[in-house]
Nucleic acid binder design. Sequence first.
RNA 1: GCGCACAUGAUCUAGUGGUUAUGAUACGAGGUUCCCAACCUCGUUACCCGAGUUCGAGUCUCGGUGUGCGCACCA
Length: 489
Amino acid sequence: MLEASGHVAEFSDFMTVCLACNEASRADTMLEAHHPNPDALPMSELQALLDEVAPECPACSAADWSPIVAENLMFDTVIGAGSSGRPAFLRPETAQGMFTTYPAVYRHFRERLPFGAMQLGRGYRNEISPRQGMIRLREFNMAELEYFIDPEAEASHDFSPWASTMVHLVPAAGDAFRSSIPDALTKGVILHPTVAWYMARTYDLMQDLGVNTDKLRFRQHARDEMAHYALDCWDVELHGSYGWVECVGIAHRGCYDLEAHERATGQRLRAWRNHPEPKVIDIDGWTTDGAKAGPAFRALAGKVKAKVESLPSDATFPASLVLESGEEVVVEVEHVKRVQRTETVAGEWFIPHVVEPAFGIDRIIWHLIDHAYQETGGEEDRYVRMHLHPDVAPIDAAVLPLFEKDGMGEVATDLHKRLCASRGLLAVYDASGSIGRRYARADEIGVPCCLTVDHTTLEDGTVTWRDRDTGEQMRLTMDEAVLRLSGRR
RNA sequence: GCGCACAUGAUCUAGUGGUUAUGAUACGAGGUUCCCAACCUCGUUACCCGAGUUCGAGUCUCGGUGUGCGCACCA
């Protein structure tokens, strides 16, 4: 499967080590001046070119290189124990399983395009030196959607909700600019409507998760950067402490993947398209008479048949034919027969195209936190707030009795229990320290609101609702507070 | 992978070849306080791992691991 998808080849770098200083370099990178595209060379040709050119080591200027070794970015492992173990790789992305199960998904969607399959899972890459904390991991989480479409069908996405939403676009050619996504599609900057559609949907998702959209941009892959099969590809980049980081890739992969797997396995990975009107085809030509041609041509019979069937209806026999493989044969009248019939063709099989939005979960979560984290005050009076969107905040509310006496503790405990019993809600109870200290604790971990129980609560059942972001307070009955919080879910 | 640096409670940090290893913050218990990290008392938690040198190593040496930075790498 990984060979079919190109990962075995594509995820390899050809490395060579300088025998003088032990510095490892990529052979193809060093030979860029001597070949138009050394990246595409097979290993043996690259080795020959390296021997011929003998480039200087970028580290020590020697020109004495070890034989080229293929370094694969996939982790290899062994399935099973001892000598019965079979070599295997940890997947570098989740996508491939969705291509190989395409026939089942196609059936599941009752054989009608468009449809999509999604997968959430881990991928593994043998990064040489990961660094950058959660940004480059050897084991990471991703969510990928393979959305299969008919390349000839008119896309009918409704872009009206995004008509006035200006986003930051960095096209492959030309300067960055602000535009709405539908405008960029109309102007031909975004090449495909379905790609534009997922860009728009992704923009909404990022906003709903609490990404600061001023720190979001769409960057189009340049031609030479795009995987060779992709027709168009836009990354969503988020800006944080590491600068602009690719967090989502939305790629139009054409029919590359299904075609590659079909070629590798022989299994049909296609969809059926009816013609608007069934096509009536008159077949008028020749074929071989197997009973006569078979014994006459033996091993060549198949090729003779192909050749004869390619002849026009006015061909005459006997005839001397040159086969595709070069042999010349004489075909007699008795070897052939006329074919004349009418066929009705209702439609055709074709390989769907696929648009793939792929989300780097860890990178997105990291940026949610990066964007939400805010320090105010100075060295002495630093105050930290985590402005997490309420939908992603792990704790929905904090219940704070002003004091744990005169029954306030009991009322607060009851309120806390009520909140936690509400579906999808998680509240914490905190009675230690001054009230300000408890607000600070809650702000620091991003609790969107605090509910404070005081003496008035004992009299009329109202609590103070304090907003994390503004510090503003209002009085609500406990019923209203519970309702409000569960309504957020 | 190469080079350089660093590694002490939950966090930040002081420190020295020699009794019980600083301090602050945080956290817990109690007190106080009627709404934004106040204050008082008490309390819990640490020298990255392994080997070596030494009477004695958290401190010195070597190796390992991890993290950061530079180079390379980043489909």
